[in-house]
Design a protein around this nucleic acid. Structure first.
Ligand code: FES
Ligand code: FES
Lengths: 132, 132
DNA sequence: ATTATACTCTACTTAAACAATAGGAATTGT
DNA sequence: ACAATTCCTATTGTTTAAGTAGAGTATAAT
């Protein structure tokens, strides 16, 4: 149970975007230097956010990224999901016949409950909460 | 963010012990067959629980494992901790100077809060809750 | 138009962690 | 003595995370 660097770096990236929201476009290089993250790696992470629709992109010179919604409208769950994929503590949360006895596996409820707890928590916090 | 098989298998093992608490000793082989888990792997997991003081062991023929406390006195957090080590979503939760700017890293609080959320939840549930 | 800037796409490599296997030693009941 | 069962620890195999690399595309400024 760890948070990946992709998600952690991703958060830093999104925080930069949030802090510059409605002020200016943010470039990969800028975040890469200030946070000491490989710019090539950060590019890939930024791409995930683009695909998830969390950021708007302007290509070419003077281009960069900005949030596609206000910081208040972007939850931490959306960010971590964009970076790591759906939050699924155990496969039996999504797919059946995982531990060969899903139907009567008394542990299934535990994992589902815990998973919901975490997603509820992350879904209730927004980027705005973090930067303020 | 995944739960390891060690923890999942470990839970199954502990549930067997809980269901047989004050009834009989439980052997690795028994759980291994019924849950279709490699017995050699399960041995290692059982060893972690022994080290953590969650189970009592009787060696030799007719030996086996039993809980060292009642199912109600063993939290899920203790189990997952014994299996996976301390629950630490990001290293900056335990050690400082992790992301080079811990002191003013606004993300630190987020991880600590989320970590506490999860440990509180798991610490509030017991083996008894699962088997009943 | 040309150039510099910055994002896009895809493939590859490396390193670490997870998962599982293996085999013999020690202990105990019969 | 012998069988059952845990104990110990080394090794191997597999998967995923993390990072590197480089050519390609779009745009602004000049
Ligand atoms: S179905 Fe998830 S642990 Fe059994
Ligand atoms: S100190 Fe944990 S993310 Fe910065």
């Amino acid at each position: 149970m760890k948070v990946s660097t992709k998600a952690r770096y991703g958060f830093k990236f999104m925080i930069h975007l949030a802090l510059n929201y409605n002020i200016k476009l943010v470039q990969i290089r800028e975040v890469s230097v200030s946070e000491k993250i490989s710019s090539k790696y950060l590019e890939q992470i930024a791409m995930s956010f683009k695909i998830a629709g969390l950021v708007k992109v302007t290509r070419g010179a003077k281009g960069g990224y900005t949030l596609s919604r206000t910081p208040k409208e972007i939850t931490l769950l959306e960010i971590i999901t964009a970076a790591e994929g759906n939050l699924v503590l155990t496969d039996c949360i999504e797919s059946s016949d995982f531990c060969q006895k899903k139907d009567d596996c008394i542990m299934n409820k535990l994992w589902v409950d815990l998973n919901n707890h975490i997603t509820d928590y992350l879904g209730s916090k927004t980027l705005q909460d973090i930067i303020s």
